[in-house]
Design a binder for these strands. Structure first.
Length: 450
RNA sequence: GUGGCUAUAGUUCAACGGUUAGAACAUCGGCUUGUGGUGCCGAUGAUGAGGGUUCGAUUCCCUCUAGCCACCCCA
């Protein structure tokens, strides 16, 4: 080890190479949570027949303008967009669905047996003001079903999202609504604007809502201002305006959820912010039954959401294809896991630590390590360390079950020391009997457990 | 994007405007040059950046940066 001198480079925090705002490093301990989520999501994907795919992080800007919607906040205010060296307008994906839909069209996935069910997981970018549970790069995983208009698809997706949290022991509730199809929604918007035009109701609205009235009246429904909520009470509800087909679709989705005991809350004010949604829309919010202040969960940001987007593929130039899907926020889920102290049930492995003293012993152990690894043992080592003390510290740190210690003396005698790390007892055995001895010990350990 | 709060070792915290900015945990080393998980001793290591006020600033003021909270929006 070189001695430290005062000339040694000292990294400083917040220096000119520091992280970009709203970006996060995921270090070792944190990654355990990612692991858990990725595993759980992959298992569900497997089980329900969704196949993993990935699409580029960069796409053409117009993909999002046309699908997500030029006027949505995500596209108009929060997107990382730029012109690249060839002069193309590019964007870092702010959400996943458009890219996946684009891939569906581009690779002719409509020629595969339908429905095509995709599982996607990756980072998204939105230039927002960061706070906890909201950074400029975050990750989601999405489940999408293309080429299926049956309400079973909607219900199954909701079920999967619900199961995901249930199995993680996180209490959630499904907020659900139907925003109909283009026809019945337009009719409803007409009714809604007519309602707001009555006797100076508009004057009671907040500044934002006055704008919403003109630009996107549906959004009047999810304003949180007190006065706006008051006016809203009497407003017509979209479920009453659904056309027969849309109503029937929605009812069937709810019936499936009822039969599966998925708790949901019919929320007539749920309107999702992206242009391409139709019919079923839903959001997954944290929910504690014992919560005294119901504002606690109302205020909390949602863990994920989704819905149907039957028109999207056509908008992007594909043949008309019904589709639906959802996305769940990985970081927000991790926040919940930590908040609720949900244990990461780590696999119990019987680590065997190989410790050595002296160059010759090190060489021998170096080879033994490879041998044991190939034979399927969970071997661990710290061959860069010289002192036995440091090696046993490491062995202890990783929770090894046994340490095999080889020094000069053992080398000469053709023996090796087996140390039981829990009890601290150790035994000198014939070097040749390593495998049989370890096997015997592990077998005994197994029986003791049963 | 709007408003507010905050910023000290790797981490969690301390320091009436006044000596050398303290501690715990973590890290490394030693006690024990062949023995970890509990002990003892020691070492490394910080005032986010830049200005200003002052004899003197971690402390007061300004700007920037970052984080947090609320809103907006959303995952």
């Amino acid at each position: 080890m070189p001695k430290k001198t005062k000339d040694v480079f000292k990294p400083k925090r917040n220096n000119r190479f520091s992280r970009l705002r709203g970006m996060k490093d995921v270090l070792f301990d944190e990654y355990k949570y990612w692991d858990l989520i990725i595993r759980k999501a992959s298992d569900l994907a497997d089980f329900y027949g969704f196949q993993r795919m990935e699409v580029p992080i960069l796409e053409k800007l117009n993909l999002y303008e046309r699908s997500t919607g030029r006027d949505t906040d995500i596209v108009s205010k929060e997107m990382y967009s730029f012109i690249d060296k060839s002069g193309d307008k590019i964007a870092l994906r702010p959400e996943a669905t458009p890219g996946i839909a684009r891939a569906y069209i581009e690779h002719g996935l409509f020629n595969k047996p339908q429905p095509v069910k995709t599982f996607w997981l990756g980072p998204l970018f939105r230039h927002e003001k960061p706070q906890s549970g909201r950074s400029r790069q975050h990750s989601q995983f999405n489940f999408d079903i293309y080429g299926e208009d049956s309400p079973v698809a909607d219900a199954q997706l909701i079920l999967i999202a619900y199961n995901f949290y249930k199995e993680l022991q996180i209490g959630v509730q499904v907020q659900i609504n139907s925003i109909g199809c283009k026809e019945c929604r337009d009719e409803y918007i007409q009714k809604l604007t007519d309602f707001y035009k009555e006797r100076g109701k508009r004057s009671k609205l907040c500044v934002d809502c006055k704008k919403r009235f003109l630009k996107n009246p549906l959004r009047l429904l999810d304003c949180k201002e007190k006065d706006c909520i008051e006016v809203r009470e009497e407003a017509p509800q979209i479920v009453d305006s659904l056309c027969d087909a849309c109503r029937e679709h929605f009812i069937k989705v709810l019936e499936y959820l009822d039969e599966l005991d998925v708790p949901y809350n019919l929320n007539p004010f749920l309107v999702r912010g992206l242009d391409y949604y139709n019919r079923t829309v839903f959001e997954i919010i944290p929910f504690e039954e014992e919560a005294e202040d119901e504002n606690i969960f109302l205020r909390q940001s949602s863990l994920g959401g989704g819905g149907r987007y039957d028109g999207l593929i056509e908008i992007l130039g594909g043949r008309p294809t019904p589709a639906c899907g959802f996305g769940l926020g990985i970081e927000r889920t991790i926040l919940k896991i930590k908040e609720k102290n949900i244990p990461l049930n780590k696999e119990e492995k019987n680590f065997i630590f190989l410790a050595q003293l002296g160059d010759q012993a090190r060489r021998k152990m170096f080879i033994l390590f490879e041998e044991m690894r190939r034979s399927g043992y969970q071997v661990r080592q710290a061959f860069t360390k010289d002192s036995l003390k440091a090696q046993l510290e490491e062995s202890n740190r990783i929770g090894a079950k046994y340490s095999l210690i080889l020094g000069q003396k053992e080398l000469l005698d053709g023996t090796i020391i087996v140390r039981d790390m829990e009890s601290g007892t150790q035994e000198v055995i014939d070097y040749k009997k390593i495998y049989s001895d370890i096997d015997k010990r592990l077998e005994a350990g197994k029986e003791e457990k049963n």
